[in-house]
C-alpha cells in the first residue's frame, strides 16, 4: 500500500513532538538568545542566573504540561471516536473538558485546592468522570452522531453555566478573566508542582487507554462482531471511562479546557495509519502532544503584544475540521 509503515509514522510523530518540545524551550516573552538557552540547558550558566531559572523552572514545566495535556486530549479523542465509531467524538465537544474544568473551579473556589494538593486533579477527574458517564448514558453506544453532539452541547452549556455560577458566587475580582482561563485553556505559569500533581493520573489514564486498541480494532465490525472476537464490551467501557476521566480530568484541572485537539489529531492521522483504530492510538498520543506544543509556541511568539489563549488557537485550527466533518457525516446526522 502507498501509506507509510506504522513504525515510521510513529517514530516521525515522536521525533516531531520531541523537536517541538525542544523548540518550545527556546521561545518565550523573555526573548533569551539561543546561546543563553544552550548555556542554561547544559548547566554552564550559574544556578542563580535568570536564564537558568527561566529555562528550568518556567519553560520546562510549561512544555511538560503542554505535552501531557496534548497527549491526554489526542489519545482520548482517538479512543472516543473508535469506541463510539463517530469521527465527531472529542473530549471538548462532548463536554468532558468542561466537566473537568468545573471540577477544577470547584476545587479552587471551595478552598479544597488550598487544603490538599490532590483536590485539584481529583475534582477535575470527578468532573470529567461524571460528564463521561452522562454522555455515554444519554448518547451511548448506539446513539447517532447527532444524539452525541446534542448531549455534548447540553452538558457543555450546563458545565459552563455552573463554572460562571461558582465564579460569580466566589465574589472575586478576577471572575471574568478566570472564566476565560477555564473555557479556553492556558499553559501560562504552570509549574513543576502542577506537572508533579497531574503527571501520575494522566500517565495512568494514557496507560489504560492504550489497552483499548484490540477492542477498538474489533469494533470496526460492530458490537456483535467485536463480542464474537472475544472482546468484553463492558470491560472496554470501564477502561475508556476511567482512562478518559483520569487523563482529561487531571490535565484540564491544571490547564483549563483546551478544545478540538482530540478532534483534529485523530482526523489528520487516520489516513497515515490506514484507518486502523488501534494504531491510531499511539499516533494520536504523540500527535496531540505535538499539536498543543506547536500551538503554545505560537501563543508565546505573539506575546507580549497579544495575549492569545491556547484554546483560541486550537479552535481556529479545529473548528474548520469540525465543519468539514459535519458536512461529511451530514447524511448520517439527518437520518
Amino acid at each position: 500500500m502507498s501509506t507509510p509503515g506504522y513504525p515510521s509514522v510513529l517514530s516521525a510523530l515522536i521525533i516531531l513532538s520531541l523537536s517541538l518540545g525542544l523548540l518550545s524551550i527556546f521561545v518565550g516573552p523573555a526573548g533569551l538568545t539561543v546561546a543563553q538557552v544552550i548555556a542554561a540547558l547544559s548547566g554552564t550558566s550559574g544556578d542563580g542566573d535568570p536564564a537558568s531559572i527561566i529555562i528550568w523552572q518556567i519553560r520546562m514545566p510549561r512544555m511538560l504540561m503542554g505535552a501531557l495535556a496534548g497527549a491526554a486530549l489526542g489519545l482520548s479523542g482517538a479512543v472516543l471516536q473508535g469506541y463510539l465509531r463517530n469521527p465527531l467524538a472529542e473530549p471538548g465537544i462532548i463536554g468532558v473538558t468542561s466537566g473537568a474544568a468545573l471540577g477544577g473551579v470547584v476545587a479552587i473556589h471551595t478552598g479544597l485546592a488550598a487544603t490538599s494538593l490532590f483536590a485539584l486533579p481529583l475534582l477535575g477527574l470527578l468532573g470529567s468522570l461524571i460528564t463521561v458517564l452522562i454522555i455515554l448514558g444519554l448518547a451511548g453506544f448506539r446513539g447517532s452522531p447527532l444524539t452525541l453532539i446534542l448531549a455534548g452541547v447540553a452538558v457543555t452549556s450546563l458545565a459552563s453555566a455552573l463554572i460562571s455560577l461558582v465564579l460569580s458566587l466566589s465574589d472575586n475580582p478576577f471572575a471574568l478573566t478566570e472564566i476565560v482561563f477555564w473555557m479556553l485553556g492556558s499553559l501560562q505559569d504552570r509549574s513543576l508542582e502542577h506537572v508533579g500533581l497531574a503527571a501520575p493520573p494522566i500517565l495512568a489514564g494514557l496507560g489504560l487507554l492504550l489497552f483499548t486498541s484490540r477492542g477498538l480494532d474489533a469494533l470496526t465490525l460492530g458490537e456483535y462482531g467485536a463480542q464474537n472476537l472475544g472482546i468484553g464490551l463492558d470491560r472496554l467501557r470501564y477502561l475508556i471511562v476511567a482512562g478518559v476521566a483520569l487523563a482529561v480530568g487531571s490535565a484540564t484541572a491544571i490547564t483549563g479546557a483546551i478544545g478540538f485537539v482530540g478532534l483534529v489529531v485523530p482526523h489528520l492521522l487516520r489516513p497515515l495509519v490506514a484507518h486502523r483504530p488501534g494504531r491510531l492510538l499511539g499516533a494520536s498520543l504523540f500527535g496531540g502532544a505535538a499539536l498543543v506544543l506547536a500551538a503554545d509556541i505560537v501563543v508565546r511568539l505573539l506575546q507580549p503584544e497579544y495575549d492569545i489563549k491556547l484554546g483560541v488557537l486550537t479552535a481556529l485550527i479545529g473548528a474548520p475540521f469540525f465543519f468539514y466533518l459535519v458536512l461529511k457525516t451530514r447524511r448520517e446526522l439527518i437520518s
Binding site: 542563580g48 531559572i53 527561566i54 523552572q57 518556567i58 477544577g104 473551579v105 479552587i108 473556589h109 478552598g111 485546592a113 488550598a114 466566589s170 472575586n172 475580582p173 478576577f174 478573566t177 478566570e178 482561563f181 477555564w182 501560562q188 505559569d189 504552570r190 509549574s191 513543576l192 508542582e193 502542577h194 483549563g256
Partner: peptide
C-alpha cells in the same frame, strides 16, 4: 491566598518563590 483564583498561580509559582528568597 487572599483570593481563591487560578489566576494567582503566577504568585504561587516556585520560580518566583525561589527568586524572592534572594
Amino acid at each position: 491566598e487572599d483570593y481563591k483564583t487560578v489566576l494567582a498561580d503566577n504568585l504561587r509559582h516556585p520560580a518566583l518563590g525561589n527568586y524572592l528568597r534572594n
